[in-house]
Design a protein around this nucleic acid. Structure first.
Lengths: 159, 159
DNA sequence: ATGGAACCTCAACCCAAGTTGAGGTCAAGC
DNA sequence: GCTTGACCTCAACTTGGGTTGAGGTTCCAT
């Protein structure tokens, strides 16, 4: 049962092309502790097939905008090595999902604000929720950062 | 009507704090051609109040994830100096809006894929649309990049 | 047994978007 | 008239996510 047609190990080139990455990126990830490999007698890297899963997770998370350092942490929290259990993965993925949802919500708020502004030529008007050209925001702490975390255009309720 | 309480020019410190930025960022933006200033007899920068609008646009666009170089291009296409017309602004903003919508759509697709995966413990399964652990993607050109532009989980239709 | 592809290490470089620091000037209040 | 804080320039540094290149080795097919 060990004579499967699937090779047990991947060379760097195979791993890279299958993962849609470059070999240098693989080296980089290894240096950064995101993946691991072993060496042949000739000092060449070999990757377990499971590395493809890991690389998939890494790419996905990067797509989500998660920095590598956090990916590494989550990944290493998951398991010292080898396949994560469903529960472990679910927990990590749920965290990322929340993250994602927040980012979607933020972008959506931005888009709504932008929609309003497109119609109203708001940029030069005095009440643009994106923009605040009129200094009133200066009263609210440092900077007129309406569009930062948590909401756009909360210009009402100054009290 | 010219004795308004509003000062006609802003010092770097004022501009920075009103815009919610640092003075060094203002310098940087000026070097990069995103904003402009004039100098006092003592070589200190002064900013027109309109710079706050510009900085607002810049921050907004950055929030949208637009790189400074593109912001600069759009901004300079708008007008050599001074207030953009409503139409000009509308055009730029519409472009950004589309951009934003695309990004929202992409993140939403990702989230949906992630949702599926959380439920199914997919990471270790062989058909994860986020992840593609099973090498089949290697058949489709370079790399198993399901989650890139245009869709997630197009694993069907291999022909 | 040899030529070329794929691999190795290590250091240097790249980009964006700024920040930090040194060394010097300007402006305002007491 | 001096101190203090805001300002000036210029160069170097930072972080993140890698890429590029030099110089050398290994593997595989012919």
């Amino acid at each position: 049962m060990n004579s499967t047609p699937l090779p047990k190990a991947l060379t760097p080139g195979q791993a890279a092309s299958r993962a849609g990455l470059t070999v240098s990126a693989l080296h980089f990830y290894e240096r950064e502790g995101l993946i691991s490999s072993w060496r042949t007698s000739g000092n060449q890297r070999r990757y377990d097939r499971a590395v493809l899963r890991r690389l998939g997770v890494i790419k996905t998370a990067q797509n989500l905008g998660i920095p590598l350092a956090e990916i590494r942490d989550k990944l290493s929290a998951l398991h010292p090595e080898d396949p994560p259990s469903r529960d472990e993965w679910a927990e990590v993925a749920s965290g990322w999902r929340e993250d994602l949802s927040e980012r979607i919500a933020k972008l959506t708020r931005l888009r709504d604000a932008l929609d309003g502004c497109i119609g109203c030529g708001c940029l030069s008007a005095s009440k643009c929720p994106l923009n605040n050209p009129n200094d009133r925001a200066a009263q609210r702490g440092t900077g007129a950062c309406y569009v930062e975390d948590g909401g756009v255009a909360r210009e009402d309720a100054p009290a």
